[in-house]
Computed example of a mutant assay.
Amino acid sequence: MTMIKAGSVSFQNVIKKFGDFTALPDLSMTVEPGTLVTLLGPSGCGKTTTLRLLAGLEHPTSGRVLIGGKDVTNLPANERDVSMVFQSYALFPHMTSLDNVAYGLQSSGLKKAEARERAEEGLALVGLAGMGHRLPAELSGGQQQRVAVARALVLEPQVLLLDEPLSNLDARLRRRVRTEIRELQQRLGFTAVYVTHDQDEALAVSDTIIVMKDGDIAQKGSPRELYEAPASAFIADFMGEANVLPCEVSHVENGLASVHIGDLMHQLPSAHAVTGKAQLAVRPNSIKLEQATIGALTGMITHSAYLGDHIEYEVETKFGKLFVVDMDAHEPLPRDISVAVHLTGRGLALIHH
């Protein structure tokens, strides 16, 4: 295979309507060459529509789409320098893995011998050397997924599009295949736009995550930025569960904010804190419980579940129900007891209205 030519992606004021429904009200975004950018969000947020617009399977109502600096807004799918890996893999069941990978190359006019040689290289690239003779039914789900990635990569696209590529795999395999996809992307340096609704997947594979809500970009940033500095309660809860508590910032000095949650006061490093009412996003594993009837913040355990390496609790407080994950406990605290709630340092983020 020749060198991957990583292209940029640009959406400029893209509006997409389906009849009276506006899927994308006004989307502008950029994907830098050689990066893996994930479009993340709940069902109906516009992420798949965005991917289909990029692939040429849909066309904007207005606005422009550019790939590698070239305006492709009105080009059909087969004239865009992109390849797509579908959720269902879309492999031909009657063709061997090698023939599946070679199919697109032959369709684009390459001689059969050369197409098969390139397909062999593609299979080797994804760790399936020597598996070309197998039919899709003779491969595991993870291997089928890699065949689909190889088939897309041998076309040497400027941009690889991945639509929920791991949703058909079980949890353990998902972890392994997402690592493989990320390592392959970093090794070859291709541009990838990856769609998922799974925040763990997005955190694991992305250079940049774009969280979408109602067809708009709710926040864009690195996995760490989105997890540790969410811009809203929606982002905080979507990027791994968060308890969102009302709070008041009384004082800010030298990058430290004094945050009051009821009678509980906590000092928090914060670059952009301002005094006044705010919200505090608290990760479930940032809360420590101890059996006590008094404390700055107390609650009642209403539910506990032992999950092997951790214990989950629901605690009723005057601010509502808190979800707590205890990674250290060996014995669950009993239900219906009063507990003091303590906040530890990490996993707390201030959200200003």
Score class of each variant (00 low, 15 high):
residue 116 R to V: 14
residue 84 M to P: 02
residue 121 E to Q: 14
residue 270 S to A: 05
residue 116 R to M: 13
residue 81 D to V: 12
residue 303 H to N: 14
residue 314 E to G: 15
residue 142 G to P: 04
residue 352 H to S: 06
residue 227 Y to C: 05
residue 294 I to Y: 05
residue 263 D to G: 00
residue 58 E to R: 03
residue 273 A to C: 05
residue 96 T to R: 01
residue 165 P to S: 15
residue 183 E to I: 10
residue 233 A to V: 04
residue 189 G to E: 05
residue 14 V to G: 01
residue 140 S to W: 07
residue 336 D to N: 12
residue 233 A to S: 09
residue 86 F to L: 11
residue 46 G to R: 00
residue 186 Q to P: 13
residue 162 L to E: 14
residue 115 A to R: 07
residue 77 A to W: 00
residue 124 A to E: 09
residue 114 E to D: 13
residue 7 G to L: 00
residue 104 G to R: 09
residue 49 T to G: 07
residue 205 V to C: 06
residue 96 T to F: 01
residue 67 I to A: 07
residue 7 G to F: 04
residue 217 I to A: 03
residue 331 E to T: 13
residue 171 A to H: 07
residue 145 Q to G: 07
residue 324 V to K: 03
residue 62 S to Q: 01
residue 249 V to I: 15
residue 57 L to P: 11
residue 263 D to L: 01
residue 25 P to V: 11
residue 247 C to L: 00
residue 78 N to C: 13
residue 333 L to F: 10
residue 213 K to I: 01
residue 143 Q to T: 02
residue 172 R to F: 11
residue 209 I to D: 00
residue 132 G to R: 05
residue 39 L to G: 03
residue 251 H to N: 06
residue 60 P to Q: 02
residue 129 A to F: 10
residue 314 E to A: 15
residue 147 V to W: 06
residue 108 S to C: 06
residue 96 T to W: 01
residue 302 T to Y: 13
residue 122 G to N: 04
residue 176 R to Y: 13
residue 199 Q to I: 14
residue 278 A to C: 11
residue 201 E to C: 14
residue 269 P to V: 06
residue 352 H to M: 08
residue 12 Q to W: 03
residue 106 Q to A: 12
residue 188 L to H: 10
residue 346 R to G: 07
residue 201 E to L: 15
residue 56 G to P: 07
residue 322 L to H: 05
residue 237 D to K: 12
residue 277 K to Q: 15
residue 193 V to K: 11
residue 131 M to H: 10
residue 198 D to Q: 13
residue 87 Q to P: 15
residue 116 R to D: 13
residue 40 L to T: 12
residue 41 G to E: 11
residue 342 H to G: 00
residue 69 G to M: 12
residue 259 V to A: 09
residue 329 A to K: 09
residue 292 A to L: 01
residue 331 E to Q: 11
residue 95 M to S: 03
residue 159 V to A: 03
residue 99 D to K: 13
residue 197 H to C: 12
residue 53 L to F: 02
residue 97 S to C: 08
residue 141 G to R: 10
residue 2 T to M: 13
residue 14 V to E: 01
residue 173 L to C: 02
residue 46 G to F: 00
residue 83 S to H: 04
residue 11 F to L: 00
residue 184 L to V: 10
residue 170 D to V: 06
residue 13 N to Y: 02
residue 127 G to W: 00
residue 248 E to M: 08
residue 186 Q to F: 14
residue 169 L to Y: 12
residue 127 G to H: 00
residue 105 L to Y: 06
residue 249 V to W: 05
residue 111 K to T: 02
residue 204 A to F: 10
residue 308 G to K: 10
residue 30 T to I: 02
residue 244 V to Q: 00
residue 140 S to Y: 06
residue 22 T to A: 08
residue 18 F to M: 04
residue 143 Q to I: 01
residue 201 E to P: 11
residue 163 D to C: 08
residue 35 T to K: 15
residue 111 K to L: 08
residue 236 A to I: 03
residue 322 L to K: 05
residue 79 E to P: 03
residue 163 D to R: 09
residue 222 S to C: 03
residue 253 E to I: 07
